[in-house]
Design a protein around this nucleic acid. Structure first.
Lengths: 352, 352
DNA sequence: CCCCTCGGTCGAATCGTTTCGATCGAAACG
DNA sequence: CGTTTCGATCGAAACGATTCGACCGAGGGG
């Protein structure tokens, strides 16, 4: 009587005295089954210790796993340090949660590489969301395209076969910079996001600029420069973190004639800049105006509120989730461009 | 010639003029195949646009998916705000990355609930890691146990069938408190982690204490009280965040005779307490000593270094990963207790 | 010169479901 | 009372691979 192997639907059906197909229906509820039969099946299952239909077998038959992959082109530790990425995931989880088992996080192990092509080719996904912005350089899209797996990109370049959730990086960045300009600032510097490929820290010179960077990062710089009408003195951060912002702040501020305003292309960078300013004895916003980008919570800056471009981070995830749902239902969602709005906080003021 | 459906191994084999079994071997490399044949198969595959063996079919046959589930009993947004959880995930990913497709994050959608039982029953996992500490209250273990899925718990209570990676919460917490005592402090207060169930904010009174809280949280409190030799004046935070720490700090410090030292049971809480102290015009460590727990990076406290109990966060994940590997290989790993060491920083000093 | 071995290849069984079409009895209808 | 209809149930065919044992020839050892 004792079976060493786990019970299957066949065993349950036999024990309940019904056919496998009926037993299956009893579990899935996808067909007409009399209450009595259903109960017999469930009882038999309980008695045998049957845990319900095997997910793998079910997947094979149905052709889907319910798993949505989220691709990061960074090591997990770095990707998850970014509040924007977390918010995105949260929105995604919120939208997709009830649907399937969950989110499969696909990251690289390397400091800056994403998951391997083999990993992507072998992952049991129904759809994938590219959370990183450097879509075009990624050879990661190809294996999924071959498998005909629906893909959604976040703030990436437009690519055939990849639905896009985008935000108006150029416009928002321009708006922030215009705000700074309208306050009367003349000496403005920028802290830009890491310029792919090969994140490094340092002044963004001509040569570096000419490398094709990531769309997002390039767009934010472009917005700033469009507002100024000229190229801006910029420092490139190696990552979007407070520490990097601090290093940037030090480099930009600890000079003879420091800027009176710094436009940082992320809130974390801005926070670092403010910290550096404080360390150098500069007051914000009296001696230095600082603006950020993203609109994350910055309780540690309290009582200061950061002037920044607020993007709908969680909403981005939700919309991506809805796109995934649409794609899986066979519909073709249109690309979405989400609005970003300027929030004037207490970190910007007219120059003295 | 045009096929509307995606090619399968059968098509590839036919096109290459070999049997399916041989084609399979050519892909998996698990058997002797002549170089010539292998090449023919790969060529045929390329020509047909065959993306490699279907993950679901492969899973069904092999009985495993390569997916490791990570269970959080919280909404993703909250779970991922905790640097300790991120570090754990990072260590896990590092250890398991090369093995399989990735980590399946299983969270609830509710503010404080984990994934549903059905979700767990239907997830195609090879093994699961419980990242939350409240293992015992979770009905989540059961569905996985029935499915005979190997489980690893982090800092949870000892449970049959669940391998454990633990840290010495009691000892470490005692050590931190002893350090405070050795500096000569008499008026000591604590900020404890949320006391399950029903996270709320407020003084930890008798009634609340008597509820069986989570092991970790209880252990850290116990360590503190063992050192003091009496029950401690404690504030319960609703979450392990800077904001909550700040609220706690306000409540504990904005009174007639405030404590001269506060032991916070997480670094984030400690950071909040320090912030609250500053807001109240208290200097750290001159007017108030503050200690934390965890040993996360706190660049924003710079130049202050937090006095804290440093736990090997990433290592915890790595070890959990190794345990998973062992379990999948049929070995039965022993439970692990990782050391935690006191790091004396600049936030603690003798009382004035 | 024969037998054994071994690399390379193949057929067929199997993994555990879901699902389609057929069947069967009973109720409903004319 | 015969025919339709419909709900409940069942058999059998997928789903797309892996894997085990068998087979076949060539090369090596006796």
């Amino acid at each position: 009587m004792a079976r060493t192997t786990r019970p299957t639907l066949t065993h349950v059906a036999a024990s309940a005295g019904v056919s496998v197909s009926t037993a299956s229906l009893a579990f899935s509820g996808a067909g007409p089954v009399s209450e009595r039969t259903r109960q017999r099946v469930l009882d038999a299952a309980a008695e045998l210790g049957y845990a319900g239909p095997d997910p793998m077998a079910r997947s094979l038959r149905q052709g889907r796993t319910g798993i949505i992959g989220v691709v990061f082109a960074e090591r997990l530790r770095h990707a998850f340090r970014d509040p924007v990425a977390i918010a995105l995931l949260d929105g995604l989880a919120e939208e997709l949660g009830p649907v399937g088992p969950g989110l499969l996080v696909l990251t690289g192990n390397d400091e800056r590489a994403g998951p391997s092509t083999e990993q992507l080719a072998a992952a049991p996904l129904d759809a994938a969301v590219f959370a990183t912005c450097d879509l075009e350089e990624e050879p990661l899209v190809e294996p999924l395209r071959v498998r005909e797996i629906p893909m959604v990109g976040i703030e990436g370049p437009r690519m055939p076969g990849v639905s896009l959730v985008d935000i108006d990086n150029i416009g928002a960045s321009r708006e922030v910079t215009e705000h700074i300009l309208s306050l009367g600032h003349k000496r403005i510097a920028a802290v830009v996001l890491p310029w792919r490929p090969g994140r490094q820290r340092g002044f963004l010179d001509r040569a570096r600029r000419d490398l094709s960077g990531s769309v997002v990062f390039a767009d934010r710089l472009r917005g700033t420069e469009e507002a100024i009408g000229a190229s801006v003195h910029a420092w490139e951060a190696a990552a979007s973190t407070v520490e990097e912002g601090r290093a940037a702040g030090r480099a930009l501020l600890d000079v003879d004639e420091p800027p009176t305003a710094i436009v940082a292309h992320s809130d974390l960078l801005a926070a670092g800049v403010i910290q550096a300013a404080h360390e150098l004895g500069l007051r914000v916003p009296e001696d230095l105006s600082v603006a950020g980008f993203d609109g994350i919570d910055t309780p540690w800056l309290d009582p200061l509120t950061l002037t920044t471009a607020v993007q709908p981070m969680v909403e981005k995830g939700r919309i991506a989730g809805r796109m995934v749902t649409d794609l899986l239902a066979g519909r073709t969602p249109e690309d979405v461009l989400l609005p970003v709005h300027l929030r004037v906080g207490g970190t910007t003021a007219p120059p003295r």
